[in-house]
Amino acid sequence: MLKAVAIRAYKTVLACALGAAFMLAPAAASARQSSDLPGAAPVALADLPFQGRKTYALILQGGPFPYDKDGTVFGNRERLLPLHKRGYYREYTVKTPGARGRGARRIVCGGAPRTPDACYYTGDHYASFREIRE
């Protein structure tokens, strides 16, 4: 009898935990829809490295960009940025002194190329993003 009560209690606790997880999942998904990224503090434009500020200025003036890949569609496969249709985001290289090739730093902007809705900086090749605030 005691074993049956313990099993029922375990099932009840498990059901409550699973129910809470399913209830919170939509809230987490909608958090990514907002302009603020969960867990990532925005970064002021003035606090970007010099090369980042230079890339940002080039984005707003429409180029010319130093790399062929600059301005190409960013797919947001990591789903770390707010969700939008494919083609919404474009990526731009932020030069890394001493790096061979393009390095790991990028700015990703969403919206119209010269007047983006929002831009995000990543210093770790898309592992994390911070919204750029002017």
Rank of each mutant, 00 (worst) to 15 (best):
M1P: 14
M1Q: 06
M1S: 08
M1K: 06
L2M: 07
K3T: 14
K3M: 07
A4K: 11
A4F: 03
V5E: 15
A6H: 12
R8F: 09
R8A: 08
A9Y: 01
A9S: 03
T12R: 15
T12E: 11
T12V: 10
L14P: 01
A15N: 11
A15I: 15
C16T: 13
C16A: 13
A17F: 07
L18I: 14
A21E: 04
A25G: 11
A28M: 08
A29T: 05
R32G: 09
Q33R: 05
S35Y: 12
D36Q: 02
L37R: 02
L37T: 09
A40E: 03
P42D: 05
V43C: 10
A44I: 01
A44D: 13
L45R: 03
D47V: 14
L48C: 15
P49W: 05
F50Y: 06
F50A: 08
F50C: 04
Q51F: 10
G52Y: 13
R53Q: 15
R53E: 07
A57Y: 06
A57W: 06
A57T: 12
I59L: 00
I59F: 00
G63E: 15
G63F: 02
Y67V: 14
Y67K: 12
D68E: 02
D68V: 08
D68C: 06
K69Y: 13
D70C: 09
G71C: 05
V73F: 10
G75T: 11
G75S: 12
N76Q: 09
N76K: 05
N76S: 03
R77A: 15
R77C: 07
P82K: 03
H84T: 01
H84V: 00
K85M: 14
G87R: 00
G87Q: 01
G87A: 01
G87T: 01
Y88Q: 01
R90V: 14
R90G: 09
Y92Q: 09
T93G: 09
V94T: 08
K95A: 11
T96H: 11
P97G: 10
G98P: 12
G98T: 04
G98Q: 07
R102F: 15
A104L: 04
A104R: 15
A104K: 09
R105Q: 10
R105W: 06
R105F: 11
R106E: 12
R106Q: 09
I107Q: 04
I107R: 03
I107N: 02
C109I: 13
A112V: 00
P113I: 03
T115V: 02
T115F: 00
P116Y: 00
P116I: 00
P116L: 00
P116N: 03
Y121C: 00
Y121W: 04
T122M: 09
H125E: 07
H125P: 14
A127V: 10
S128G: 12
S128L: 14
F129L: 02
F129Y: 05
R130Y: 02
E131S: 15
